[in-house]
Design a protein around this nucleic acid. Structure first.
Lengths: 222, 222
DNA sequence: ACAAATTCGAAATGATAGTTCAAATTACAA
DNA sequence: TTGTAATTTGAACTATCATTTCGAATTTGT
């Protein structure tokens, strides 16, 4: 509630300037998204967003109540799009192990091809974590995956049954532990970027893929 | 260079108010550290640090050139202390696998007993990542572990030789991938805290220990 | 108790975020 | 094409915060 995300459904509502407003809104989000990716969330002022969007401050505040509001809206978009693409990647795979593998591979691709987006999410996690109300988190999550994370646990269960995964795994616990670790690794690599390459001596995607390899080894039945 | 960290060595320098200055410095760092842990780095103003330290703003700027300077100094302390304790934990263990296991266990303990510190480091990583010059990173790292991270790779090599680790592992790559993943997982759990517990349905230390378990499975020889 | 170092007080500067509202402009339906 | 409702603008305004300045007062080590 009190959210600023677009109302879907109700296509028959005919608020007069609806489509115009949505275009403007997107204009602002796109401009802000580009700036955030380049300079980091903290490195961008409201005035810069306003300029980049080609509007005046007073207009900006017609659409968003502040900078954070913009950040949240972008996060919702990124979430939604990520969930969608992730799901598609998993659908292509057959067995449970293959699905899990495909999901992790999808995350590796994201790190390779859209590091700035991943870095943005990392910054968001760290900075906004303490402002997340549980409701806000749940509403975001629900919006993204109606089944929740339960789907992932069932994957492990499935994998144990078909003999591709270690039988002693605790489906719920393991899947969540793995997802958290993989997201954590991915975002850390994205935010530290070249610093971590310097420190560790390997390209970040190489490091990430090795992480995946070790984890899959840890899940796979012997 | 241009660093604000304490000059060590040269114990014969007899700057008159040296010990007093160090006490004051520590006073400020302690006050700031407590505030950062409670409210997050962004949630603390310079004025609040000044008040908590019981001094005036003008005095504060005698010791630090700005808030970031304070943050960096605290990070250096946390690094140093963490490295020290981590080393001690590993020394107690015998085999390579046991050492690695002890290191990961040490990180789990940190997450359990000092989540606020870990959260602080997570926030730092995300916010200051793009301001890290490679020199600054290397100097911090050198200060912390003179051997660098090379020590960790040699651990894997050792484990392969004594047959406790998978022989096909690439020592350098694997160790760095694992360290990154574990730090990433630990910090993400610390920064999301109760949010992730709500989402995943498990306590964060439980999730973290499961992560470790899977990773160790992935490293261990069959 | 003296000189040097440190702290204080208090005011000033300069960014930045956010707000407000009357006037001008624009979009759309009839 | 036009009337009107919605939107945008301009410009001024408030508030918060970081940081600086410097002479006076205080504290420290010897």
């Amino acid at each position: 509630m009190s959210n600023s995300t677009t109302q879907v459904g109700e296509s028959s509502e005919r608020k007069p300037y609806r489509s115009h407003r949505e275009r403007q809104r997107r204009r602002i989000l796109d401009a802000a998204g580009r700036l955030f990716e380049e300079h980091g969330i903290e490195g961008v002022t409201a005035a810069e967003i306003v300029n980049a969007a080609g509007i005046r401050a007073s207009t900006f505040y017609e659409y968003f109540s502040n900078k954070d509001d913009v950040v949240w809206a972008i996060v919702a978009d990124v979430f939604e799009e990520g969930a969608e693409r992730g799901k598609r990647a998993m659908d292509a795979a057959g067995t449970a192990l293959a699905k899990i593998s495909a999901l992790l591979e999808f995350m590796a691709d994201d790190l390779t091809h859209r590091p700035a987006k991943v870095r943005f999410m990392a910054e968001f996690d760290a900075m906004y974590a303490r402002q997340w109300s549980p409701e806000r988190l749940l509403s975001l999550e629900a919006q993204v995956s109606p089944g929740g994370f339960g789907y992932f646990s069932s994957l492990i269960r499935e994998g144990i049954e078909d003999g591709s995964l270690r039988p002693e795994l605790d489906p719920d616990l393991t899947m969540h532990a793995v997802i958290n670790a993989v997201i954590g690794a991915q975002r850390r690599l994205a935010s530290l970027g070249s610093r971590v390459e310097l420190e560790y001596g390997h390209r970040i995607d190489r490091l990430f893929r090795e992480t995946i390899r070790v984890i899959l080894f840890g899940l796979r039945a012997t």
